[in-house]
Amino acid sequence: MAGSAAVLEDSSLLSRLDRALLPIERFCALLSGLAIFSLMFLAAYSVVGRKFFGSPLLGYVDYIEAAMPIIAIMGVSYVQRDGTHIRMDMLVGALHGRVLWLFELISVLLILVLIVALAWGAWEHFDRSFDCSRPLCSRDSSIDIGLPTWPSKLVVPVAFGVLVLRLIVQAVGYGRALILGLDNPVAVPLTLTVAEQAQAEASQLAGHE
C-alpha cells in the first residue's frame, strides 16, 4: 500500500532543487488526476448518448487509450519523491546510518540506470510515430478514428525525464548522507517503520474530515 514518508527541507542548494522540482511534479500528478476525472465524464457522456439519444460517442475507445499514459505515468516522479512506490522494507527498515544510506544509494542508482534506458527507448517509440512531413506529423494512428498516437507516446519520455531529475536529486541526497554520515538528510524520503507509515496514512485521512 502507499506508504508515503517525510522529506526534510533546509536552505541548502540540494533542498532548494528538491523544492523547485516539487511543483512540476505536483502539476504532472494533477494532470493525471484530471484525466481520471474526465474519464468518468467521458464514460457517462457515452452511456447517456447511447441509451437516450441513440448516438454513442465515436472514437470513445481511442480517446481513453490516448489518455491512459497521462493517467498511468505522468505522476511517476511525484510518487517517487516521497517514497510512495511500494517496496519490501523488512531489511532496510532494520538498517540505519551509513549502511542504510549505502543501500538506498545503490537502489536509486539502479533505478536511475533503468529509467535513463527506458526514457531513451520511450523517446524512440515516440519518434517512430512522428514525422512532420506528413499530415498532423503522424506516422502512426489509432484504430477507430485515426487519432495520431505521437502525443500520447510523448507523455512517457517527458514523465521519465522529470523522474530522471528527481532520481539525480535523491542520489545526491543519499550520497551526501553516506559521506557526511548524516542522521536526517534532506531531499530524500526517510525510511519509516511500517507502523509509522500507517500512522502517517491514518492522520492523512483524518485531515480530510
Binding site: A2, S4, I36, A72, I73, V76
Partner: peptide, 16 residues
C-alpha cells in the same frame, strides 16, 4: 484527485 492519481500511478508503475 491528487490522492487518486498517486495511488493510480503507484499501481500502474508496478504494472508496467
Amino acid at each position: 484527485l491528487l490522492d487518486t492519481a498517486k495511488l493510480t500511478v503507484m499501481i500502474f508503475t508496478i504494472i508496467w
